[in-house]
């Protein structure tokens, strides 16, 4: 069972905690505000009133046992930075932090945040979906039931064509595009790659290592694909 901790229950933190809980993730939420904690306590696994900038408290909560921690603290950049630093020092493997602006994001990057999200900028992108699995790069909700997601090509799909994989029948998903990396050498001799989008790929298209599939389907079916 996936365990994710969410620190800070503003609008974004609340939405993330709810979405994760709905997906069956074990969620620990931490906030200083008792009222907010009470609001979420009915649907998350554990809700704790605590100060996330206090290292001893975080250690006692066993925060390092959580593979992913989302720092969703609102306007207080110092608290957000300090919390991130503490999480890093306590050995949390994957830290996602809500960014406030460019400078804040750069500081977070320097101290080791693994991913910075800008909820207001990434509007429409169902970011919580992408927290559950690093294999999902981005997901956009099309309806309560259907989503469009970018999924890293499962290893078992590599070197096979779409027809043989029978993704539509077997996995109930439609591949509408492939994001493919094209390696090249720049003028200065450095390697680089550009990303090309193969739209509506033919059934004969062979999937390659490094591809990202753009798929449409139900949430559960996309979950099945990412678990392959």
């Amino acid at each position: 069972m996936k365990q994710i901790a969410v620190i800070g229950l503003g609008t974004f933190g609340m939405a993330v905690a709810k979405t994760l809980a709905e997906k069956g993730v074990q969620v620990l939420v931490i906030d200083k505000n008792e009222q907010r904690i009470q609001e979420v306590s009915s649907f998350v696994t554990q809700a704790v009133v605590a100060d996330a900038t206090d290292e001893q408290t975080m250690r006692k909560l066993g925060i390092s046992d959580f593979g992913t921690v989302v720092v969703a603290s609102g306007g207080n950049r110092e608290a957000s930075i300090l919390t991130t630093l503490i999480l890093k020092e306590l050995g949390v493997k994957y830290i996602i932090v809500k960014g406030l602006d460019d400078i804040h994001a750069r500081v977070l990057q320097k101290i080791g945040a693994d991913r910075i999200v800008f909820p207001e900028f990434d509007m429409g992108i169902k970011v919580a979906e992408t927290f559950v699995s690093p294999n999902i790069v981005e997901a956009i909700e099309l309806s309560p039931e259907y989503t469009m997601a970018e999924v890293i090509v499962p290893k078992v799909f590599i070197d096979q064509n779409i027809r043989d994989l029978n993704v539509r029948e077997r996995y109930k998903l439609q591949i509408i595009g492939i994001k493919r990396k094209e390696p090249y050498i720049k003028e200065d001799g450095d390697t680089d790659f550009k990303e090309v989008l193969v739209i509506a790929p033919s059934p004969n298209e062979i999937l390659q290592d490094g591809d990202t599939l753009v798929v449409i389907g139900k949430y559960n079916d996309i979950d099945n694909l990412k678990n392959l």
Binding site: G99, D102, L108, Q109, F121, K186, D192
Partner: peptide, 18 residues
């Protein structure tokens, strides 16, 4: 420069954000 650009992109820092 290139390493910095790629690192920014990976972490989620986009150019031009204020």
């Amino acid at each position: 420069k290139s390493a910095k650009e790629h690192l920014d992109k990976l972490v989620g820092i986009r150019k031009g954000r204020k």
